[in-house]
Nucleic acid binder design. Structure first.
Length: 348
DNA sequence: GTAAAAGGTAAGGGTAATGCACTTTT
DNA sequence: CAAAAGTGCATTACCCTTACCTTTTA
């Protein structure tokens, strides 16, 4: 297959295809293009981002079915065949015979490889091990000193997934501060953010030579504050904090700036905000949390960053909805709308 | 005045996506 | 042999849940 044609055809399904490396495109051209076309005929669009609960369940179903067809006795053997060298040959043969790749990705409009990785996360016994204890962190540092970035090895030694240990190490490798931010740290963070936004604006101005209009330098527009920021770069500039801490701190700073310090989630205002939030969510009719347009929602509570609304929604869910962990997203929204909303309106 | 409900801030596990390399199949 | 399919792993940027307090409310 000619690469350019493949690119062109894929573009319909994967808009950012031009930024993807040739090797990755070749892979997708092979298996996924045909699948994507089939989905299109059924009117189903290719999806990105977090898998919905429905998709996760479909994966579970597909795996179970495949296991029962082939008689392989565990998902781990199927998805981590290399952990079972003595069974490798049999399993590989069964996979090929019964079209493993096709079966696994059945009914899920995504690139097969991503479905495969999702399945591996779901069924890896080393995943979902919860918080690291102090001892584990020490161990991790020690193992890294011994083996470097050989996460596979370290992961085996710690009974945690490759991803988990790699991530955790990157967080704890250099000493960072914990606890409340000092004045200096906060200042540093604000300067760092300002700097990267400035830089970006300069670049834009250089690109669009239509500097005819304004010197907007003085005023940093709202969206600029929201938009994606290069957090690792900011981490380096702040020096004492991990990027995740920086990002989180920035949203609280932003929230304060935008609300000018008034607490809009307290008292009557808070009630009204909750009511609006529930109503809007209900109207949206989203089946899964990742279908929600939080950006738009944030306007219903007030002028706040989206992360703020997401956090508020989470609190609401946890504190009001019994067994929320067992419920689907739409069930949660329905519950809030039917049970909690009247109660809140009463109080108003 | 007090317990509990609600709020705020920070911590932290887990996630999707992708490049590259190696192995097996066609 | 070359190309394609199948697999594994490191790396990056980010989402969502939870822990732990302080403040407010009933």
């Amino acid at each position: 297959v000619d690469l350019d044609t493949a690119k062109q055809e894929l573009e319909e399904f994967i808009p950012h295809v031009r930024n993807i490396s040739d090797s990755s495109i070749r892979k997708m051209a092979g298996r996924d293009l045909a699948r994507f076309k089939r989905f299109k005929k059924q009117g189903i669009a290719v999806k990105f981002g977090r898998f919905s609960e429905k998709e996760n369940n479909q994966i579970r179903k597909n795996v179970e079915e495949f296991l029962s067809i082939t008689g392989i006795d565990s998902a781990e053997k199927l998805l981590f065949t290399s952990r079972y060298p003595e069974h490798k040959e049999t399993i590989s043969r069964l996979k090929a015979e019964h079209l493993f790749c096709e079966k696994l990705s059945e009914g899920i409009p995504r690139p097969w490889r991503l479905i495969y990785y999702r399945a591996r996360k779901i069924f890896d016994p080393n995943n979902y091990k919860g918080r690291y204890t102090k001892e584990e962190k020490e161990k991790l540092k020690k193992y890294h000193a011994l083996h470097g970035n050989d996460w596979k090895k370290i992961s085996e030694m710690m009974s945690r997934s490759n991803l988990s240990v790699a991530m955790k190490y990157s967080e704890i490798k250099s000493a960072i501060n914990y606890g409340p931010w000092s004045k200096e740290e906060t200042q540093k963070l604000m300067h760092a953010v300002e700097e990267v936004i400035r830089k970006r604006m300069d670049m834009e101005d250089a690109n669009s030579l239509s500097s005819s209009e304004k010197n907007r330098d003085l005023l940093i527009e709202r969206e600029k504050l929201y938009q994606k920021l290069p957090w690792t770069e900011i981490e380096a500039k702040v020096g004492t904090r991990y990027w995740r801490q920086c990002k989180q701190k920035w949203t609280t700073i932003l929230t304060n700036k935008m609300t000018k310090g008034q607490q809009l989630y307290r008292g009557t205002k808070g009630l009204q905000a909750k009511i609006n939030l529930i109503k809007r969510l209900y109207e949206m009719k989203a089946e899964d949390a990742n279908e929600v347009n939080w950006e738009e929602l944030s306007n219903t509570i007030g002028d706040v960053p989206r992360a703020y609304v997401q956090a508020k929604f989470y609190k609401l869910k946890v504190s009001c909805v019994p067994f929320w962990q067992k419920k689907t997203f739409s069930e949660i929204i329905d519950y809030l709308f039917e049970e909690k909303l009247p109660e809140l309106e009463e109080k108003l």
